[in-house]
């Protein structure tokens, strides 16, 4: 084959591929509806309990955490892993509990208890000024640094105030994991894409509470809609003096802490 023949062949071959694809799309369009509708129908549709269609513009979600109610039982951590299919090992978490121990000499120790290490700790009570648990999770910031750094636009804030990751776009570069000041992201070892708390988006659109809120025995977590006047979160925000984590970074977190100790980072 000489050069001329090759180029002629190529000229015929490549556009032909395009035409074939066009024909494929045409056939798809001729079927029930446009291609997008067909794809949507393929995914199981979320049941709408109220019968009304879920409209993201009506909602804006956040969470309240009452630090003094947390008993550190890790029910939320386990429920989150079960609900969201988070790998059990290595220790990746979408939500987790931290134990703060403030000692007389000003030293602050932070441990994250998991099922295995929870009760092994032995400390000299006399040095300990105070000790308490703090639940942590993605803050679903209104100004999320993780979204800013994503080179392919795979992570974004939804209209209803949740920061999501598009697993099909994510290239696993870990920029967002580095950028998150709260350590709320991890690289899922199975998909090699970034994983994080979604406020249990699939539950919330069905009118259910996130799994961690559902199982909390002491109501240390309050989930709600900042756009609704009657939501528990709005009442929580009115009744408590609130703090967010690392306010100096201007990330505008939407996870609000009541009775937060100054040592908590």
């Amino acid at each position: 084959m000489n050069k001329r023949d090759f180029l002629k062949g190529a000229i015929l071959f490549f556009p032909a591929g395009g035409l074939l694809a066009l024909a494929r799309d045409g056939a798809r369009a001729a079927a029930p509806g446009p291609a997008r509708e067909a794809e949507k129908a393929a995914a199981p549709e979320a049941p709408k309990p109220s019968g009304k269609r879920y409209n993201p513009a009506d909602h804006y979600y956040g969470m309240g955490i009452e630090v003094e109610k947390c008993i550190g039982c890790s029910r939320c951590v386990e429920a989150c892993k079960a609900e969201n299919d988070v790998p059990a090992e290595p220790y990746f978490f979408r939500t987790w509990i931290e134990r703060y121990t403030v000692r007389a000499d000003g030293e602050v120790a932070v441990q994250s208890p998991n099922q295995r290490t929870r009760h092994v700790e032995t400390t000299d009570d006399r040095d300990v000024i105070r000790t308490f648990f703090v639940p942590k999770l993605c803050n679903h910031c209104a100004q999320p640094p993780c979204v800013q750094v994503c080179p392919v636009g795979a992570t974004f804030s939804t209209e209803d105030g949740v920061v999501l990751v598009d697993g099909e776009r994510c290239i696993g570069c870990r920029y967002c994991i580095q950028a998150c000041p709260y350590g709320a992201r991890y690289l899922d070892p199975r998909t090699r894409t970034a994983g994080k708390c979604t406020f249990c988006y699939h539950r919330v659109v069905r009118g259910l509470k996130p799994a961690c809120v559902e199982v909390c025995p002491t109501e240390a977590r309050v989930f709600g809609d900042l756009r609704s006047k009657a939501s528990r979160l709005v009442r929580f925000r009115r009744m408590n003096k609130l703090n967010v984590l690392k306010p100096a970074l201007n990330t505008e977190p939407k996870v609000y802490y009541a009775q937060l100790d100054g040592e908590v980072r």
């Binding site: 995914a43 993201p56 969201n84 999501l164 697993g167 988006y201 659109v205 069905r206």
Partner: peptide, 10 residues
């Protein structure tokens, strides 16, 4: 992405 998230099993 939202639809994919929303469709996850409860």
């Amino acid at each position: 992405t939202e639809q994919r998230e929303a469709a996850k099993p409860v």
